[in-house]
Design a protein around this nucleic acid. Structure first.
Lengths: 327, 327
DNA sequence: CTGTTAGCGCATTCAT
DNA sequence: ATGAATGCGCTAACAG
């Protein structure tokens, strides 16, 4: 495999000139540039990025850490990150943690070890201590915001979003509304719970802790729990923290013979494809998933390339209620 | 950021010894090893992977090229690749092409440029010429097999799989079966079409080219086409090339008032989550998606680490029919 | 505009 | 078992 040295010899110039051509320095005459280009062509020279990156002390890689890619929500966020990274000539190193903080910590070490220039943490559970020694300029949080991680972030206003959807349900005449959200450890879930509480309060409905169901994002758990609940007590709606949970809720309502949305309304969250596809189609809160990924990548890359002009910022992107059949 | 040199000085040894400790060479006394480890600890030394990779001429990164990650099928394949890569201490660089061969070509260049050690091409459209100059030892095809790419591959027997599902439909009493598959350029789609033809032939049903619908993998196109088709002619089943297409087909059948599966049966392909979730649930051909990714990564890494013992191989993994409500 | 030269951090001979 | 020295391929001063 030929090197700059070989190219230099062939073109009758110095390696510096070859390097200049390679890096589009304008300080090289058109004539020599052509000569170098010709030599590169003839030798089939390809720059060794391992060497270049080492020399420049820059990998042009950004790490993307998320719980799973099986969830269409994250898949879409990643797409936003990837497209943007590509635009700026960065590649993305993917890490799905399955919500294991240990896995996340292991990958985050790649920053200090220079395998990657920075990281986007998209809602993945992380270990506080493992990340505290990393330069916050090199990390952007997406989808979720952990306070103890003192970084920039990009996400929607989860509290307001959940407030809006519960308010919508109430306006539709629902009075006995369940709230099905994720586990306590997740900040956005607590935000959403608060949004739920405030929407009830605003409309003069009493908030009851027992009406808050904590469960996983999948469809199975909420399905089982609701099947039981809906038999014993009478509720007229549930606001779910994911579209998949909404599917589970709909299945449960169907199973106990409730008519949707008249007898029982269901709302989802995220607006992934299945919410449009399912029957009944699911009323949900649309998150700008792609935009979140895009913005996160933009902030990160900007911060990496202009570390001096760094300022920690919190970007709140707009959400939107998608009205469909289920509520 | 401290370097091996700093560690060496602190520990009172040479950089060579530090390097030996770092690489677990056994040719270092326990006493000095401890001294070096202590120095590393005290200085907070982290090896610079940019330098190490450059020196070793190895990135420990594998490129994963696929059309999209929005499709749950590919998301699962990627997970198999990622887990396996991690096991062998490799990272994965993700490239979703949106089926643009140009994008794929651009990323494949990273192999020659040593940004990645090799690539897994999972069903992405690629440009023949762009890839022909790359060492086939450094590429593994997954899900799909392009003959002109002379590499190892991991996939199911698409012809047999489609044969099986069509044969199943016939055994269920269906006689007028449509075949809804992807575009002509994709080898597996032609395999599937042949499987469809053979299943009809085996059961004494005439094959008609007009009963083969070529369309995209999404649900929208097949939905529109079938809504028209099902009004004018009478078919009693359709075998689809993806689960999403099956959803579109079911929607179309419902739209024209056909009862599923009695009046019109629908089968999918892949066995992604939605096939289990949808109502009716979808009878489909399960592909071992995770296993495909896992095996592809194993072959590739093995080939990268033992280039001399390389042999091009074709791995056919088993498929399985999942019987559900739609057929 | 171009060439000479140093050196990024590390692993690896080759000595001892 | 350890150290001294070399160089991977490239970019970036610096000098001219």
């Amino acid at each position: 495999m030929p090197t700059v040295k070989d190219v230099a010899k062939k073109a009758g110039v110095s390696v510096a000139t070859v390097s200049r051509v390679l890096n589009n320095s304008n300080k090289v005459s058109e004539e020599t540039r052509q000569r170098v280009l010709k030599a590169i062509e003839e030798l089939g020279f390809k720059p060794n990025l391992l060497a270049r990156n080492f020399r420049k002390d820059k990998s042009n890689l950004i790490l993307v850490i998320l719980p799973t890619i099986a969830n269409a929500y994250f898949a879409r966020v990643v797409k936003g990150v990837e497209d943007t990274a590509r635009k700026y000539d960065y590649g993305i190193l993917l890490c799905t943690t399955g919500n294991s903080p240990e896995v996340a910590s292991e990958y985050l070490k790649l920053i200090e070890r220079k395998q990657v220039d920075g990281a986007i943490i998209a809602s993945a559970k992380i270990d506080k201590d493992a990340v505290l020694e990393i330069d916050p300029k090199k990390i952007v949080q997406a989808c979720e915001f952990y306070q103890f991680l003192d970084t920039s972030c990009v996400l929607i206003d989860h509290k307001k979003a959940f407030f809006d959807i519960v308010d919508y349900l109430i306006k539709k005449g629902k009075k006995n509304i369940l709230c099905a959200i994720g586990n306590e450890g997740i900040p956005s879930e607590n935000e959403r719970k608060e949004g739920y509480r405030q929407a009830l309060e605003k409309n003069g409905i009493e908030f009851k802790e027992e009406n808050v169901i904590r469960c996983s994002y999948g469809w199975a758990e909420i399905y089982e729990r609701l099947k039981t609940l809906l038999c014993t007590k009478k509720y007229d709606a549930v606001a779910c923290s994911s579209d998949l949970m909404a599917v589970g809720a709909i299945k449960a309502a169907k199973a106990v013979g409730l008519k949707i949305p008249d007898e029982f309304a269901v709302t989802g969250f995220d607006n992934i494809m299945i919410s449009r596809l399912y029957e009944p189609s699911i009323t949900t809160v649309a998150q700008p998933m792609y935009d979140i990924g895009e913005k996160a990548a933009e902030i990160l890359i900007n911060s990496l390339e202009n570390p001096n002009s760094f300022s920690k910022e919190k970007f709140i992107l707009p959400h939107e209620i998608k009205t469909r059949e289920s509520a």
